[in-house]
Measured scan of single mutants.
Amino acid sequence: MLDDRARMEAAKKEKVEQILAEFQLQEEDLKKVMRRMQKEMDRGLRLETHEEASVKMLPTYVRSTPEGSEVGDFLSLDLGGTNFRVMLVKVGEGEEGQWSVKTKHQMYSIPEDAMTGTAEMLFDYISECISDFLDKHQMKHKKLPLGFTFSFPVRHEDIDKGILLNWTKGFKASGAEGNNVVGLLRDAIKRRGDFEMDVVAMVNDTVATMISCYYEDHQCEVGMIVGTGCNACYMEEMQNVELVEGDEGRMCVNTEWGAFGDSGELDEFLLEYDRLVDESSANPGQQLYEKLIGGKYMGELVRLVLLRLVDENLLFHGEASEQLRTRGAFETRFVSQVESDTGDRKQIYNILSTLGLRPSTTDCDIVRRACESVSTRAAHMCSAGLAGVINRMRESRSEDVMRITVGVDGSVYKLHPSFKERFHASVRRLTPSCEITFIESEEGSGRGAALVSAVACKKACMLGQ
């Protein structure tokens, strides 16, 4: 009897593995994704193909990295998701002549009506938060230079001027797309009239992360975010950046690689679950690469896999709870928690219980395998993109072996128990001629924006502006 049951459990697990095998990517698959990513990057950089390229390769006008001589107080704003952060950054000489960066910050959550109302409502709310922060720190009387981390696709015309191309991540505030974001912020500050600010720089969160990590390690020339969304930036040779005049030196390019796949480059790798996630998203047909990796989508992918296993009578005796059938019910943090389970399955059992399920031991094991399959594919897909960037940098610099540091931020990278190990191992397999160091950014977005502002202020002083 026991043997029969054991055989049935083994057969069930084997069927589960057959279904989950769809998520496995072979090294040849990853090399294919990497080569296609490089081709799209090239198209994004070139003037004649930029418009139709899915990977936009947006110039950021960040050319210099901090040298350690900029000092002063800077205000930093960070808008990239449902939370908005205001930070005071003091850049100065530390002990023994070292450079020191001290920060104080406060988080504000953005109400739904500000995210989806008008641009005026959104930026009025942001300036209200700045006003509140300055009151708390008794700094209303000071006109501070301000660095703005704005983590949406922007076409820069200068370091302090950028046109919002399109909202992502659930934002829909009308009247912002096609307009200068810094102008919208300046107008809102003017409307309030109770404080003055000098907006000197606007950067993407990947750029802010790279600059913040450069402060720790001067070989950091790539910034990457794996959180709600997924994106990367890197220092490109100016001669390859056709959208900006000049051939000397390097400029940081914001790849906006989340949109890779929007022209069909990933079609052969998309599964039924991916198509369902895409169809029910706020932007169907867009940001397809990001939807395979980002935390906004990972939990939902797992939920759809679990429903398939229920329908195949391989999980929960073929019956799903009402909660499990509800879109968004299986949160991405559950994926991390399930994979963090120590082996007694308590954590998995508790999560499934909150979803109205009474799982068996085998159910718990199957749910864990589903989570591992989805998150491992995410790590491997992400590795193909980064390997594409790094191999490109090595080739354009004609280096036999390139040493490089990548600064990384984002909740999936930082909080998932195995993502970074799987990701690092896969990147290294795909970049055999590179020695890569990964560092995690601390308060990256805010500190990085302030350091970019410090560079901009120093330049302005040198130019006598």
Score class of each variant (00 low, 15 high):
V16L: 15
L45V: 03
D4Q: 08
E221T: 12
E128R: 07
L270C: 05
M34L: 13
C382Y: 03
E339T: 09
L276F: 11
A387C: 08
V222M: 14
P66K: 12
G170M: 03
K346V: 13
Q219E: 15
K420F: 05
A387H: 04
G72E: 03
Y215V: 15
G285T: 07
K172Q: 06
D311Y: 06
D409C: 04
R377K: 08
D274R: 00
Q26G: 14
Y297S: 10
D278H: 10
F195T: 01
G410F: 03
I211Y: 15
T326L: 12
A173R: 04
T354M: 10
E236S: 02
V91R: 09
V91D: 02
E237F: 10
K420Q: 12
N231R: 04
L20I: 13
A370F: 04
M381V: 07
L324E: 00
A460G: 15
L134T: 05
G328T: 14
E395Q: 05
M57A: 04
A449Y: 00
I189H: 03
E268K: 13
D29W: 14
K414T: 15
D187P: 05
V62A: 04
L276I: 02
G328M: 13
R325D: 11
A449V: 09
K296V: 07
H50C: 03
V101R: 07
D363T: 08
L77T: 03
F260A: 07
D158E: 10
P417Q: 07
L58Y: 10
V277F: 00
P111Q: 08
E300L: 06
R46E: 10
S336P: 04
S441A: 11
G285I: 00
R275V: 14
L304F: 08
P417M: 12
T437W: 13
H218C: 15
E9P: 14
E245M: 05
R403V: 07
A378W: 01
V310F: 09
L45T: 02
V244L: 08
V181R: 00
R333K: 14
E372Q: 04
D267V: 09
M235L: 09
K56I: 04
G410W: 00
I19Y: 13
Q465S: 09
C233I: 00
E67R: 14
D262T: 10
V401D: 10
E290P: 00
C461V: 14
H317E: 07
L306S: 06
E221F: 15
S418H: 15
A387L: 02
E399F: 08
A119L: 02
A53C: 08
R325Y: 11
V412S: 05
D124K: 05
C434E: 04
M87R: 06
S100M: 07
A114F: 11
L134A: 07
G285A: 10
L314E: 06
P432H: 10
C457H: 06
A456R: 15
E22Y: 06
S433Q: 08
E395G: 14
E17Q: 07
E268V: 13
D158C: 06
K90P: 02
G223L: 00
K169M: 04
L185V: 01
A232G: 04
D274E: 06
E237Y: 10
